[in-house]
């Protein structure tokens, strides 16, 4: 009996600690300034098609201080790799020490896939995301909507909760979203450190969001 009570108590305590850590990690985002210590390592989640185009527009604007850049693409995505390589080659002229890698993980949600199977494949994608994020230990994760963002951001959050490293989660909602957030956006809104929207109607609905006009 005593063992059981102890086990329940331990579990509750762990959960409580976990929630407290989660709260602290999410709340301290704005005070964390990795840029003051040197280059900022970025994990960039490229989706497919339009998502990749948008995220590369954002990457184009970032200075050489954001190095190295680790791009994550879905293993079913053939187009994005070419786009990323072309983009990085054009950047190389500007800063000679350009460093980037491309990593592949299973896609968590194909277009039109049902929600139930989405949950299963997202959990499956987490098996790949955790080791990847724990190995790369980026200073920030930059993403803009494809389902692949969720397991990667969760992995980044976990690094913070375990006290290994604070990973800033930067989310930019796609320009296609004018009135409603995407499913990925809704999931990441509460846990992201910087959440950008590109239309004023979304800023009005989501007070935590940052609106700087159209940025892609």
């Amino acid at each position: 009996m005593a063992v059981l009570v102890a086990a329940v108590f331990a579990t509750l305590l762990t959960c409580l600690l976990f929630i407290i850590r989660l709260y602290i990690v999410v709340k301290t985002g704005p005070n964390y300034k990795p840029g003051t210590k040197g280059p900022v390592a970025v994990l960039v989640v490229a989706g497919s098609g339009g998502h990749t185009t948008e995220i590369l527009r954002l990457m184009e604007s970032l200075s050489a201080a954001y190095t190295p850049r680790h791009y994550v693409i879905a293993d079913t995505d053939r187009m994005s790799e070419d786009k990323i390589c072309t983009f990085e080659r054009s950047k190389q002229h500007l800063d000679s020490e350009s460093q980037f890698t491309i990593c592949r993980i299973p896609r968590s949600r194909e277009v039109h896939q049902s929600w139930v199977s989405s949950v299963v494949s997202t959990l499956d994608a987490l098996r790949y995301s955790l080791p990847l994020v724990f190995r790369l230990r980026p200073d920030m994760v930059l993403c803009n909507g494809p389902g692949t963002c969720v397991p990667l951001c969760v992995a980044g959050l976990l690094l913070g909760i375990l006290g290994m490293k604070k990973v800033l989660l930067v989310y930019v909602e796609s320009i296609c979203r004018v009135q409603t957030l995407s499913l990925t956006g809704k999931i990441l809104y509460p846990i992201s450190d910087y959440f950008f929207v590109q239309w004023s109607s979304l800023r009005d609905k989501y007070p935590k969001s940052i609106f700087l006009g159209r940025i892609v």
Binding site: L58, E60, Y194
Partner: peptide, 15 residues
Amino acid sequence: GQPKNFANFLDKALG
């Protein structure tokens, strides 16, 4: 769109 606004914001926020 102005991605530079995004970059400036992020530079400031991340120090």
